[in-house]
Amino acid sequence: MRHFLLQIILFATIFFIIDKAFYFFIDRAPNREHDKRLEYVLEGKINKDIIIIGSSRGARSISAEKLEHETKLKTYNLSYIASNIQFQEFVLKTLLKYNKAPKKLILVIDGVPEFEPIGNLYYRIDKLLPLKKYTYIHDELINKGEKNILSKIFCIGRISISDFKLQPKKASVLEKTSLHGSQLLPVETKPNLKYNKEIIEYDSSNENQEKLEAFRKIQHLCKVNDIELYYAFPPNYYSFSNSFYNRFLKLVNDQTKIIVYDTLDNRYKEKKYFRDESHLNKLGAEIFTSEISDFINQNKE
């Protein structure tokens, strides 16, 4: 028995030492990424006046460069494509932990899918995985059940097969991130795009409580950090859902901070400003960004 236990201990010790060599792969994992925004956040490099947070509608519909130019306030876009409100709340929490709090936060609202239990919006674990060398991110991966507690001790528990790839990931045209964090879409419209006049009735009984909680946490974080919180509704190539909007008003304390696109602006009925039903292209984003900067400029103290 003694011999057996000694052999097991010796083997475990050797394994423990060899395991540490794998830190090399963990350390270089962020270098392969083309979207460095979250890493900049973790390194405290995002000290801006205005921060935009949202899903793809935030990343595509607001040009942070133009907003900065028009408001004279340093602006950065931290919207992540296909991210849900829980991920957006995590991004904000991380931003506030490592950076100076912004003066204003623009939370881009997805409309009907915002609080739906199932949909096309996710907690973007894939954006966290390359940043596992940061303890804060790694702890979040453990919280989310993506890694187990032993990965705190063993490097091998943190890495995955993709970490062994040496070439940097290539960003497609749709994934290109500007210096200010926006991911504007090229002026190119889907050929069969048609304006959808159907009005979607919103059913609040179906809302996901965890998503609502994340939304309230964003409101709370802004309040305690003295951040002006704006809610932006970008245009769609389909009818505006008044029933969702009415529900949304009940969730917001200060209704003067809601920026809804100009529904009477006929340009938003022209398909040349859209890439698809839910996303503006670069030209459309410029129009909507001007609306936001006008709103902010008018509300400047």
């Binding site: 083997f11 050797i14 394994f15 060899i18 794998f22 059940g145 993506e146 063993f154 091998i156 528990g157 890495i159 995955s160 097969i161």
Partner: peptide
């Protein structure tokens, strides 16, 4: 021998998701 076992453990751990 142990090198081989360590490789197996690394493969197991690396590929064990949920």
């Amino acid at each position: 021998k142990w090198g081989f076992y360590i490789i197996l453990i690394i493969c197991i751990w690396m590929l064990s998701g949920e």
